[in-house]
Every structure is written in C-alpha cells, then in structure tokens.
Design a protein around this nucleic acid. Structure first.
Lengths: 167, 167
DNA sequence: TTAATCGTCGATTAACTTTGTCTACAATAT
DNA sequence: ATATTGTAGACAAAGTTAATCGACGATTAA
C-alpha cells in the first residue's frame, strides 16, 4: 500500500506557491523544471488541486497557478484528499458467507457505511486517526517549519529561480 | 491507495482460528471454502502470517493452521504488518533540486530515515497515528466484540461448519 | 486580429502491483 | 506406502499508476 507520487508532487509544489502574490502566478513549466518532474504529469496534479479549490489557475500567456486560500486554511489532508480522493484505504469486499458480517445478503456498500462489520469499523477508525493528524498540519505551518530548518541558501535559490521567470 | 485484500482475508480468517484448541487446526481448504475465497491465494496469506509467528502450521494429513500466540497478544497491526510489510505509505522520491531537502545530493534513503525533509516527517507521523490505533486492538478484543454484536445463529453456523470438518 | 503561450481534457501507452493459478516438493497421519 | 496437506516459486491475468501525446479553449501581447 502506497500513496501515489502525486501526493509528493502536490505538497512540494505548494511550497513554491505560498509566497506568490495574488496577482501573480507560477507556470507549470517552471514548477516542473525546477523540481525535475514531467510537465504533463505535474499539470494533472495541479489540475486536481485546482478542482478542489486549493489552487486557482490562470490560462493563457503568463498564466499559471497560485494559492486559492490562505496557507493557514490549507491542510495536508486537503491536499491528500484532492489528489487521492476520499475512498477509505480499507474496503470490505463482503466475503461470501462471512462470519463477521451481520447481514450476509448485503454487499460492501452497507459495510463501508454505518455497518456493523467490526473489522471494517476498526480499519476505518484507524485511518481516521491518520486523517486527523493531517488535518492538523497546515501549509502555513509547513512554511514556518521549512524557514526554520532549511539553509537560507536553498530557500533563496528557489525564490531566485521563480523570480527570474516571474509571470 | 488501498490495502491489499490480503489484509481482509487475514483478519477474517483469524476469527475462525481463535477458538481452535492447541492440538487441533483448520485446513486451508475449509477456510477458503467457508469464506468463498481462492484456496491457493488464501494459503499465501496464511503463509505470511505463519512466517511472522501469528499462526503456526501443521503439514500433512489432517494438517492446517492454528494461532501461535494468545489472541490478546495479536494486534491488528501485527496482522497488517505481516501481510503488507513495514514500508511506509509515503515515500520521498527525492525530487531533483528539491527545495524541501537539506541535502540535494542524498537520495531517498536519507529522507525516509531520520531525515529533515519536513513533508516526509509529517506523513510518517500521520501513518504512525494509524499504526498506534491498530496496535491497540487485539484479536481477543475482536472476538468479544463479535460475540457481543453478531447474531448467535451466525456464530453457531461457523462453529458447526468447522467442527464438521475438524482436523 | 493574429500568433504565441498556457491550462484542460481525454485517449493512449508503459511500467508496475496485485490477484490468482499451477506445479513440484516436503511433511505427516493412517 | 500413499493420500493429504502446507510451502515455495514461476507464471499469467487483471488492475492501477505514471507518463506521454494531441486537440482544444482561454488569454495576452504585439
């Protein structure tokens, strides 16, 4: 079980969007070039975040992406959900004749809802612990943390790169 | 991102092994037939749990599986780990020239260890929340919960099935 | 108004993982 | 001995993720 690399691409890309003023933006070409990622693939990641209102996009010449919310209103969970969707990690397939289901006739839909399949409930609640943790970490917090821990040189390098290619 | 169905197969199968006396066992054929699962595939799942010491196996005629520990010493996490492995859900691919890494020269190994890639740390800690929850739920607890919530008829049905085919 | 630039969308391909099967083999009760 | 059962590994099928490509529409600068 793994998160798709999209999650990594998304979180890392957001870092560069934090400081972009509301009337500017960063193009997919710059974002992908600086991080060494595929332009077309990364654009799908940003597209997903755009759909979920995390970033907003500007079409046309000098277009690109910028944040669509304040960094303190974007959580890690928002990003994961935008990219991976809300489907639970664990899903009952409703094993036939199964001991652990009250109603062997019903299928998985009932099980992932407010079902009484104990095993499913445990797994869903376990995942909920992870989600709650992610809901508590915002992009604003991430920026502070990066400013605190990263060498200045590296931070300046990034700022320089995106300033040079400013949209 | 999804858990493999192996996790479901493993947890459900364990339920039927809880009450097996130390000198008896249940064969893969019965376990798979009762649950409507592929015999060969389920045997791989049990094999993984056997390797991790959760169950023990008896070869030969009248062979099968039984628990290798007390139900209160088997947690959900033990089962997930046996089946899915310990690899973290999120793994840094060390994006080239990446802003969020202190040392762009090092590769992912450094990042998933005690690295200072903040994003990676957050994701690892989030996963740890989920693991801790699973570490708190034992198979013994699961049995109590099932006895409490399942209709007697269903429980008896299962017991009957495995008694008939007792090894 | 035209041309270049940029994001969006869907089809397609490539790589990889999961699921499942098959076969040969080792252990064991009768 | 022999039939039964678990073990292991090769293999195949199906599904998912990663990545590419091309057509399209929106926007801006000239």
């Amino acid at each position: 079980m793994k998160y798709s690399v999209m999650v990594e691409y998304a979180l890392h890309s957001l870092v560069y969007l934090i400081d972009v003023p509301p009337n500017e933006s960063i193009g997919i070409k710059d974002l992908s070039e600086f991080q060494g990622l595929s332009e077309t693939y990364l654009s799908k990641v940003l597209g997903k975040m755009s759909k979920e209102g995390i970033v907003s996009s500007v079409s046309g010449v000098k277009g690109g992406y910028r944040l669509n919310k304040k960094p303190e209103d974007i959580t890690f969970w928002d990003v994961v959900r935008a990219v991976e969707g809300e489907e639970p990690i664990f899903q009952c397939k409703n094993i036939k004749a199964n001991f652990a289901y009250q109603n062997t006739k019903q299928d998985c839909k009932s099980c992932s809802g407010q079902s009484n399949c104990t095993i499913n409930i445990v797994m869903l609640e376990a995942e909920e612990q992870m989600r709650n943790y992610l809901r508590n970490k915002t992009i604003a917090w991430l920026e502070q943390e990066l400013l605190r821990t990263l060498p200045n040189k590296q931070i300046e390098e990034a700022k320089e790169f995106f300033k040079r290619n400013k949209n």
